[in-house]
Amino acid sequence: MERMDDNPSTTKYTLANPHLPGEAYDQITDMQLWELFKAGDKKAFDSIYDRLFQPLCGYGDKICAEKALVEDVIQDLFISLWTRREHLGGTDSIKFYLFRCLRRMLIRRVQQEEKRGNAYSFTSGISFQLELSAKATSTTISDIEEERKKVLNQALHKLTDRQREAIYLKFYNNLSFQEVAEVMEIGVRSVYNLVGRTIDILRADFKKTNPDAELASLPMLLTLLSACLEYA
C-alpha cells in the first residue's frame, strides 16, 4: 500500500502493497477498506468482521429470535464474502451492504428451515422485535424519567413490523432513506411514509400523556429514539 499524499485528511492509497499498519484500517473510508478487502487484504477483512459482527447480530436478532441460527447465517455471510471477494461490486457503506445481504440470507434460511419443519420466531412479512435498551448511556436519556421511557416503549409496540424496522435502520444505524429502502426491498417513498407515520404515532402518544412535554417535539423524539433503541 503506497501513500500518495502525506496529509492524513487527503491520503490516497493504491494497491501496490495491499497492507496497512493495524491502526490505519480505522482511519480510511469504507470504500478504501472494501477495495483492500477485495484485493485480498486479510487484515481489512478482519477489520470489517470486528467492526460489524455485533451490529449484524443486533439486526439479525430482531428479525429472528433464534440467536444460534442468526450467528450461523452471519458466519456464512462472511465466508461467502471472502470466497467471492474478487467478484463483488464496490460500496461506500459496508454496513448497508452487509445488512442488505444478511436480511436476504436470513429470510431465505429461515424459510428453508420452516420447510424442514423447524419453526422459528419469524413470519413471511418479517416479525421485527424492538425494545428500549435497559442501558441508556446517553446523558440526554439518563435524565428522562422511567414513565416517559415506558410511554415510548408502549408506542413502539403499536407500530407495524415494517415501521419498527424502518426506524431501527434509519435512526439507530444511520442509514439513508435510499439505503433503508434497498435493505427492506421497498420503494424510497414507502420508507418516507413508514417513518412519517411512525413519528406521528410516537408524537401523539407523548402528547396524550403530557401535552406540554418537550419530548413531543420532533428533534427530542428523534434523539430519544436514536439513544434508546436496543442494540442487541
Score class of each variant (00 low, 15 high):
T11E: 13
K170I: 00
M220C: 04
M184F: 04
L202E: 07
L106K: 08
R164I: 03
D161C: 11
Y120M: 06
D6C: 08
C57E: 15
L159P: 03
F96A: 03
K38R: 14
L88Y: 07
V110R: 02
S127L: 15
R104P: 08
F99H: 00
Y25F: 07
L169A: 00
Y13S: 08
G60V: 12
M184T: 08
A232I: 03
G117D: 06
N210S: 11
Y168K: 01
R203S: 10
L159I: 03
E147R: 11
P55D: 07
Y172T: 00
I126V: 15
R164C: 10
E86A: 14
A16F: 06
L56A: 10
L69F: 09
L77S: 12
E185D: 15
V195P: 00
S217F: 01
L159T: 08
I79R: 07
K149T: 02
Q163I: 04
K38Y: 08
E71M: 07
A119V: 01
K207I: 06
P21M: 15
L229E: 02
Y13A: 02
N7F: 10
N173T: 04
S190R: 09
Y120I: 04
G40N: 10
L69Y: 06
L130H: 00
V195C: 11
E2I: 15
V180G: 01
